[in-house]
Amino acid sequence: MWLVPKQIETLWTLFTAPVVWAAHFLVCYIGAAIYCAKPELVGLSFSAVRAGIAAATVIALSLIALSAWLAWRQWGLGTDDPPHDDPTRRDRTLFQGFATLLLSGLSFIAVIFTAMPALFLTECIR
Protein backbone atom coordinates (compact mmCIF):
# COMPACT_ATOMS: atom_id res chain seq x y z
CA MET A 1 0.00 0.00 0.00
CA TRP A 2 2.37 2.75 -1.18
CA LEU A 3 -0.57 5.21 -1.26
CA VAL A 4 -1.02 5.28 2.49
CA PRO A 5 1.61 7.27 4.36
CA LYS A 6 3.82 5.49 6.84
CA GLN A 7 2.99 6.01 10.44
CA ILE A 8 5.20 8.82 11.68
CA GLU A 9 5.47 10.30 15.09
CA THR A 10 5.04 14.06 14.99
CA LEU A 11 2.69 16.55 16.53
CA TRP A 12 2.00 18.15 13.15
CA THR A 13 -0.52 15.54 12.07
CA LEU A 14 -2.74 16.79 14.88
CA PHE A 15 -3.32 20.05 13.01
CA THR A 16 -3.98 18.68 9.54
CA ALA A 17 -7.77 18.76 9.75
CA PRO A 18 -8.11 22.25 11.33
CA VAL A 19 -5.67 23.61 8.73
CA VAL A 20 -7.80 22.14 5.94
CA TRP A 21 -10.87 23.68 7.59
CA ALA A 22 -9.16 27.10 7.73
CA ALA A 23 -8.01 26.89 4.12
CA HIS A 24 -11.49 25.88 2.96
CA PHE A 25 -13.01 28.77 4.91
CA LEU A 26 -10.65 31.27 3.33
CA VAL A 27 -11.15 29.89 -0.19
CA CYS A 28 -14.96 30.14 0.16
CA TYR A 29 -15.14 33.55 1.78
CA ILE A 30 -12.37 35.28 -0.17
CA GLY A 31 -13.51 33.72 -3.44
CA ALA A 32 -17.11 34.85 -2.97
CA ALA A 33 -16.01 38.31 -1.79
CA ILE A 34 -13.77 38.86 -4.82
CA TYR A 35 -16.42 37.61 -7.21
CA CYS A 36 -19.15 39.78 -5.71
CA ALA A 37 -16.95 42.91 -5.59
CA LYS A 38 -15.60 42.52 -9.13
CA PRO A 39 -17.69 40.07 -11.14
CA GLU A 40 -16.25 41.43 -14.40
CA LEU A 41 -12.72 40.62 -13.23
CA VAL A 42 -13.57 36.98 -12.70
CA GLY A 43 -15.95 36.81 -15.65
CA LEU A 44 -17.96 33.83 -14.44
CA SER A 45 -21.52 33.39 -13.28
CA PHE A 46 -22.51 32.93 -9.66
CA SER A 47 -23.25 29.26 -10.41
CA ALA A 48 -19.55 28.87 -11.18
CA VAL A 49 -18.76 30.32 -7.75
CA ARG A 50 -21.14 27.81 -6.16
CA ALA A 51 -19.59 24.98 -8.18
CA GLY A 52 -16.15 26.15 -7.05
CA ILE A 53 -17.27 26.09 -3.42
CA ALA A 54 -18.71 22.60 -3.97
CA ALA A 55 -15.40 21.37 -5.42
CA ALA A 56 -13.39 22.96 -2.59
CA THR A 57 -15.75 21.31 -0.13
CA VAL A 58 -15.35 17.85 -1.66
CA ILE A 59 -11.58 18.19 -1.62
CA ALA A 60 -11.54 19.49 1.97
CA LEU A 61 -13.85 16.75 3.22
CA SER A 62 -11.74 14.05 1.52
CA LEU A 63 -8.54 15.40 3.07
CA ILE A 64 -10.18 15.53 6.49
CA ALA A 65 -11.53 12.00 6.07
CA LEU A 66 -8.02 10.84 5.18
CA SER A 67 -6.63 12.59 8.26
CA ALA A 68 -9.36 10.95 10.34
CA TRP A 69 -8.54 7.53 8.93
CA LEU A 70 -4.84 7.93 9.70
CA ALA A 71 -5.72 9.11 13.19
CA TRP A 72 -7.95 6.13 13.70
CA ARG A 73 -5.07 3.89 12.68
CA GLN A 74 -2.77 5.72 15.09
CA TRP A 75 -5.42 5.23 17.79
CA GLY A 76 -4.99 1.51 17.33
CA LEU A 77 -8.19 1.19 15.27
CA GLY A 78 -10.21 1.81 18.41
CA THR A 79 -9.08 -1.27 20.30
CA ASP A 80 -8.25 0.72 23.42
CA ASP A 81 -10.58 3.08 25.23
CA PRO A 82 -9.51 6.50 26.47
CA PRO A 83 -8.22 8.00 28.70
CA HIS A 84 -4.72 7.30 27.52
CA ASP A 85 -2.99 8.87 30.45
CA ASP A 86 -0.17 6.54 31.38
CA PRO A 87 3.29 8.07 31.01
CA THR A 88 4.21 5.60 28.29
CA ARG A 89 5.09 5.98 24.68
CA ARG A 90 2.15 3.79 23.68
CA ASP A 91 -0.39 5.94 25.54
CA ARG A 92 1.10 9.10 24.10
CA THR A 93 0.63 7.74 20.60
CA LEU A 94 -2.91 6.57 21.28
CA PHE A 95 -3.81 9.87 22.94
CA GLN A 96 -2.54 11.86 20.00
CA GLY A 97 -4.38 9.61 17.58
CA PHE A 98 -7.63 9.98 19.49
CA ALA A 99 -7.29 13.77 19.75
CA THR A 100 -6.58 13.98 16.03
CA LEU A 101 -9.66 11.89 15.33
CA LEU A 102 -11.87 14.23 17.39
CA LEU A 103 -10.41 17.32 15.71
CA SER A 104 -11.07 15.74 12.32
CA GLY A 105 -14.72 15.23 13.29
CA LEU A 106 -15.05 18.85 14.37
CA SER A 107 -13.38 20.10 11.18
CA PHE A 108 -15.59 17.88 9.03
CA ILE A 109 -18.77 19.40 10.45
CA ALA A 110 -17.32 22.91 10.32
CA VAL A 111 -16.48 22.56 6.63
CA ILE A 112 -20.06 21.48 5.93
CA PHE A 113 -21.46 24.47 7.87
CA THR A 114 -19.11 26.83 6.02
CA ALA A 115 -20.26 25.57 2.64
CA MET A 116 -23.98 25.38 3.42
CA PRO A 117 -24.87 28.98 2.44
CA ALA A 118 -23.79 28.17 -1.12
CA LEU A 119 -26.60 25.61 -1.25
CA PHE A 120 -29.21 28.32 -0.75
CA LEU A 121 -27.78 31.59 -2.03
CA THR A 122 -28.29 32.02 -5.74
CA GLU A 123 -26.85 35.49 -6.28
CA CYS A 124 -24.39 37.79 -4.58
CA ILE A 125 -27.21 39.79 -3.11
CA ARG A 126 -29.50 37.01 -2.02
Binding site: L119, L121, R126
Partner: peptide, 17 residues
Amino acid sequence: CALLAYALWLMPGLRPF
Protein backbone atom coordinates in the same frame (compact mmCIF):
# COMPACT_ATOMS: atom_id res chain seq x y z
CA CYS B 1 -27.41 21.68 10.80
CA ALA B 2 -31.21 21.68 10.50
CA LEU B 3 -31.62 25.09 12.19
CA LEU B 4 -28.84 26.58 10.07
CA ALA B 5 -30.41 25.17 6.92
CA TYR B 6 -33.77 26.67 7.83
CA ALA B 7 -32.25 30.12 8.47
CA LEU B 8 -30.26 30.01 5.22
CA TRP B 9 -33.27 28.79 3.30
CA LEU B 10 -35.16 31.93 4.40
CA MET B 11 -32.48 34.31 3.14
CA PRO B 12 -33.19 34.49 -0.60
CA GLY B 13 -36.84 35.28 0.15
CA LEU B 14 -35.81 38.21 2.33
CA ARG B 15 -33.84 39.73 -0.50
CA PRO B 16 -35.95 39.37 -3.64
CA PHE B 17 -34.08 42.08 -5.54
